[in-house]
């Protein structure tokens, strides 16, 4: 999670760097630390440091971290040539490194040569079957190919070991929703609520899933979760307010004709 102060700091630095005010390296460090995805900015400012040999040499051994960061950002922006150059430099410096091998596999993936990337990832996993990043990349690759059930399988296998990984639960929930497997999605959202009970985003998503599932009990639960979102956000979430209205209406439809005690 990114705290408020860190967010303002990042935005301030980004503004400063964008207007040519310096501090690019601090900005890149902060982005890396907070794991933000601002690939275009990272690519632009990282490259400006890497192309300037005096600036680059002041970084010392951090230079290689920057190469890695820029390479990943470049792949995200589809600047495959830049990524290739960065990886080449890293490979010259660290021949046989697994971390560089991971980057190469990612480059293959970015190019869209799925089969080769899959082979590369598998061989990396053979060396270290506990590499979380590679497991996630494989699932992402399956998703990119449109093979959603493959992605689900991968994520489930991953969660069997790393079952406290929130982001993966969230990803899995979203895939389940897109496949209309709402019961499974509900389970994932429950898991997310359990680990962060005061995060309204998860409550809202869970309520959506429950409402979609339908049925009296689910609708009542959905209404409660919409209410909790309203409470947690101080009544500023329109979706939750609308959700409460819809739930109330649907419950009213279902319980028409029954006696009033059951309505509650």
């Amino acid at each position: 999670m990114v705290s408020k102060t860190e967010e303002t700091q990042v935005n301030r630095l980004e503004n400063q760097v964008d207007n040519g005010g310096g501090g690019a390296w601090e900005y890149l460090c902060l982005v890396r630390k907070l794991k933000l995805r601002r690939s275009d900015k990272v690519l632009k400012h990282g490259l400006s440091i890497l192309n300037d040999s005096t600036k680059r040499s002041t970084l010392g051994s951090e230079e290689w971290t920057l190469y890695e960061q820029v390479a990943i950002a470049a792949m995200d922006c589809q600047c495959l040539d830049v990524a290739k150059d960065c990886i080449k430099v890293l490979q010259k410096k660290f021949p046989g490194s697994k971390r560089v091998g991971r980057l190469e596999a990612m480059l293959l993936e970015a190019k869209g040569s799925w089969a080769e990337a899959e082979i590369a990832y598998s061989s990396l996993l053979e060396d270290n079957s506990m590499d979380q990043v590679i497991h996630k990349r494989r699932a992402a690759m399956a998703k990119a190919q449109g093979n959603l059930s493959g992605a689900i399988e991968g994520l489930n296998k991953y969660l069997e070991i790393f079952m406290a990984d929130l982001d993966v639960w969230r990803e899995l929930a979203e895939i389940y929703v897109s496949l209309q497997m709402y019961k499974q999605a509900a389970f994932c959202y429950e898991e997310l609520i359990l680990s962060q009970p005061t995060n309204p985003v998860y409550h809202l998503a869970y309520a959506d899933v429950l409402y979609t599932l339908g049925g009296l009990e689910n609708l009542q639960s959905a209404k409660k979760y919409y209410a909790s979102v309203t409470d947690l956000t101080g009544g500023k979430n329109t979706r939750a307010l609308f959700g409460i209205c819809l739930c109330t209406f649907a419950i009213g439809q279902l319980t028409k004709g029954r006696n009033k005690e059951e309505k509650d």
């Binding site: 506990m130 079952m163 406290a164 990984d165 429950e190 898991e191 609520i193 359990l194 680990s195 009970p197």
Partner: peptide
């Protein structure tokens, strides 16, 4: 793998215990 998994199970069970009332 087994040790990692046990650690993760403990985290998850602790979460469940701490915020059981939210589900």
């Amino acid at each position: 793998a087994k040790i990692v998994k046990e650690g993760q199970v403990i985290i998850r069970a602790r979460n469940l215990r701490a915020s059981a009332n939210f589900i």
